[in-house]
Design a protein around this nucleic acid. Sequence first.
DNA 1: CTGTGCCAAATTGTTAAAATTTATTGATAA
DNA 2: TTATCAATAAATTTTAACAATTTGGCACAG
Lengths: 237, 237
Amino acid sequence: MKNAMEIAMEQDAPRQNLAISAYRTLKHDIIRGRYAPKEKLLMSRLKECYGVSTGPLREALSQLVADRLVVAISQRGYRVAPMSLAELNDIYDARAQLEGLILRLAIERGDDDWEASVLATAHRLAKVTDISSPDELLDGWDLRHKAFHTAIASGCNSPHLLQMRNTLFDQVERYRHLWLQETVMSPAALEQKRQEHAALVEVILARDAEKAAILMRDHLMTPVPIITRVLQDRGIS
Amino acid sequence: MKNAMEIAMEQDAPRQNLAISAYRTLKHDIIRGRYAPKEKLLMSRLKECYGVSTGPLREALSQLVADRLVVAISQRGYRVAPMSLAELNDIYDARAQLEGLILRLAIERGDDDWEASVLATAHRLAKVTDISSPDELLDGWDLRHKAFHTAIASGCNSPHLLQMRNTLFDQVERYRHLWLQETVMSPAALEQKRQEHAALVEVILARDAEKAAILMRDHLMTPVPIITRVLQDRGIS
DNA sequence: CTGTGCCAAATTGTTAAAATTTATTGATAA
DNA sequence: TTATCAATAAATTTTAACAATTTGGCACAG
């Protein structure tokens, strides 16, 4: 019988070492909510579940600690990092501020190729409703949505700022996943997002940094009330 | 005979697990230039040098990879991350931008306690010349300098933004160390810094976000030309 | 109800060795 | 001389078995 990791890896051609593979699948499972916040991560259970021994497993876990998705308690092993309304608010605020800064820089520094890639990814995102299947729509929309925002950010031309953006996104994604599950991409929400994206593209091409930063912050903060409700329903304060 | 890690740990009371200790001492040694950029980090050598076995050692190294101080090449072990003028410029630019953003937020959000801690740490930094010994002056100045800037940043009131600031500082510190070694804190440089700090405190207390962000960016960028020259002298482009 | 001491379970670390991969060397052929 | 290539050496990566330490729970006594 195949273990969880082998199944998850079947599509990835470049077979890296076991620690990195375990890190990726574990991260994926935590973000998607397979393990609850504060849940204990038993060494023995993970070993048989992912089919790796303690060495690579501890490597993966200590990297997840650096990502703040797992917390380590000395001599008491690892637990999934807790979730809280306080962290939700801080994480989304930090992301909105950072994304605003990056957008300002992108508008200041971005060249013609950047403008072209923003337009191209925006177009691809707007046309995503053509896909019929419901599950495929959500996956396809999320993929193109990420590509759109990444294209915008890449105009800032700073690998280190983009790296920090990625780090923060990993931390936000566990909360964001709650929002995706909740809205299930209703046509109304999808239409609202479509309009926000169109407005963003317009002010970006007009190089209006001030207006763009404000639009971006509002756009990123819209999921917060919904996620707040979901967390409260689950008894998380 | 004691190994490098035991010597470095003798002052630390809270004895954590070996992986974390090895991580800290290795990071310290890389930042201080004990290992050259691109130098190969032999497993066998590190094992006997730091007195730990492969398990904790690999944990420490994989965390340093996350910090971008070490690079891992699949099946070919670990190397100290390379240094370059391109990275120097990007890293200092990213830091100046992020610190500017955080300062704006701190001026917007900081309360009276924040103002008080900025004043207090600024005063302690200005009085550092009282210490006589040359080596103690450098260490003491650097410590109080960091405390001053951390006090300013903490006003933004966002744990996640401060965490990103720390991450970026770890990456910058290897370059910054070259600057500290080069200037050796000449009285002239020290006086210039003193004036910059005084100007910063003034505009911060006046809550002038625009002027403060510009002063902060200039203040952070001053070491770049000197570090550029040091790197070029070492044949690094 | 509250400590105390013991036992089981889990973490943490070491060692040795297997499995794989990369680097080197040296002989052979063009 | 130069290039190729197989054999060998070296290093990484992983596993497995074991020792040491620590934690948590639970019976039991006060």
